[in-house]
Amino acid sequence: MTTASISPARQTVRRIIRNPSVLIGGALVLAIVLMGLMAPLLGTRDPSKISPKDRNQPPGYESTVRDSSGKKVPVEYRLGTDTLGRDIYSRVIYGARVSLVVGLSVATIAVIAGVTIGVIAGFFRWADGIIMRLMDALMAIPAILLAIAVVSLFSSGLASVIIAITVPEVPRVVRLVRSIVLSIREEPYVEAAITAGTRTPLLLFRHVLPNTIAPLIVQGTFIVASAIIVEAILSFLGIGIPPEIPTWGNIMAEGRSVFQLFPHNILYPGLILGLTVLAVNMLGDGLRDTLDPRFANKV
């Protein structure tokens, strides 16, 4: 024992940053986040700017447009244009913003709501039955349909899309948290704390909840991935974010009618969407392998 005290948390962090899946996925996610943040610098055109004369052009098309002062400047449409002549390259870059905002918001709200409800269900027997029946019912409605139903009620917009995607994710978090709470409260160290006179709120925060952090980070990462997909699906079906806002789903929805002639309208945003979700999933996989104690114990 050379070092006086290595905390288990620090050991875990050390394990995480050595995991290749975390490294690759994390680097990709970071790149996409940067892309979203620096969209005004990376984009070559205003993503909403319509240019009727440049409609439906293939990738690499070069043209001239008038800038704000009325001067003609050359412009390259790196990924071509859509049916309204908007620059797909810039729209794809700006689209990262919506996807990331939706992904992170949904994960954050779902985790907070899920932890609160899950702890109540896991620790207070009187609430358990009712809460879990409610969650069963929510789980019985397929997630995308539930999201469609919720979003169809409100005017379309970012907030309603986020709520619509969050609702079906909550029961999954609740189940996870509840099962952890139920198993942890049987642990001798929790019983020792009970006999030590530790009050229930402190007992939860000190001994029970820390055990949910690692699984929730993993689960939260996977929620980000699935929320990005569902947002794209809703937008693609025409019931998500309003069509004038550039999102990957909207760009693809735009391209549906002319897909047979101009497949790039769908394939490029599809590719970047797939890459983003892949990156997040890889990160999640790596985190699960390093954080999930059941897995770690087997080694």
């Binding site: 005290s5 905390s7 288990p8 948390a9 642990e187 001798p188 160290y189 019983e191 020792a192 704390a193 006999t195 030590a196 006179g197 530790t198 000190r206 001994h207 820390p210």
Partner: peptide
């Protein structure tokens, strides 16, 4: 009334130092 359990590996919260566990009560 205090109790000592069978499994020494699960009787102490692994995230807390021995000192923290000792002064909790």
């Amino acid at each position: 009334v205090q109790i000592v359990f069978q499994d020494p590996y699960r009787s102490l919260n692994p995230r807390r130092t021995v000192g923290q566990s000792m002064i909790e009560a």
